[in-house]
Design a protein around this nucleic acid. Structure first.
Lengths: 163, 163
DNA sequence: CTTAAATACTTCAAGCATAAAATATTTGTG
DNA sequence: CACAAATATTTTATGCTTGAAGTATTTAAG
């Protein structure tokens, strides 16, 4: 990456960072919007539902509700409704946890696994189309840059932890 | 940017693009979450409300409802509720458009302008803190990379327009 | 064993988001 | 002018999202 430097003169670090954030947000919203449309049109589903299936697909044994919200980094109450609807449709089940009647383990059903496999394949295809301009090497480098951005962010977060 | 190449071997372009997207999403969600918390804590407001004020602040004459949704790229009906609440609080007003009784122009009030100025300053500060790891040059280059990602995306969108 | 604290989860209220339907007004055509 | 089509906006239904309050159960302390 890092293409040709912009002709426009650099502004303050603060302004350039703001510009970076606005671009990041714009790009990710554009992709997200397109994904949402595709999920709706092709599978009559949503991104959050796909996210839950994706999380579960990585854990054959299942996940507790709080683990799902932990993995997806969303609030606890949020997951309840999404799992409710997916359970109604038979894509997953709540299994009681022996020895703890508060909790339940959420597991994909066979149908859930098959449905997710379809969706995941389509998902990867959509993303690949949208990012056609990036070859494997460029995508990897860019992804690494993003990770460094995230590290910068996390470090800033820690810094304020002890207020 | 483009730091040291990852030691892990490159996978297919499709996989690498997927990874890129997941990183992009993760980074932008992390920042967005933090921003939401800050807006709530410091100004008792939300990101969408800030976005509307920001859009209006760039147009002294005001914007019609449909122009707001166009600029922010959100649905029409969405803006109605947000503008309603901001109007209730006296941060903006709906002004009738002479000669077209369907439409109205939405304009910031003096209070709205002052409130937005405060929020915008804080916003820039928060972003700058979160992205401390990026100096002006690096941020600019990264922003340019993101723009090229967006161009790649838009081109992919066009391509399917004539189906 | 009893009770307070912690844990797991659900429910609730408020707001954001979309798409689609409904309303009101304006514009274009004959 | 009449009236269909287009335009501007609001309303509605549905779902995601959070944070806070509520319920049930388990764990820890005395």
């Amino acid at each position: 990456m890092t293409g040709t430097p912009s002709p426009a003169p650099l502004e303050s670090a603060s302004k350039e960072r703001l510009r970076l954030w606005l671009r990041l947000l714009k790009a990710s919203r554009a992709i997200e919007t397109k994904l949402r449309e595709n999920f709706k049109a092709d599978f009559e589903t949503t991104l959050p539902r796909f996210d839950v299936l994706a999380a579960l697909s990585r854990y054959e044994e299942g996940l507790k509700m709080s683990q799902i919200s932990g993995v997806l980094r969303v609030s606890n109450g949020n997951v309840t409704g999404i799992v409710d609807r997916l359970a109604d449709e038979g894509l997953l089940v709540r299994v009681p946890v022996p020895g703890d009647r508060r909790a339940s383990l959420v597991r994909l059903t066979q149908r859930g696994k098959e449905e997710f496999a379809c969706q995941a394949e389509a998902h990867e295809g959509w993303i690949s189309e949208m990012l056609t301009g990036f070859d494997a090497r460029t995508a990897r480098d860019f992804a690494d840059d993003l990770q460094s951005l995230e590290r910068s962010f996390s470090k800033a977060e820690e810094g304020e932890a002890d207020v």
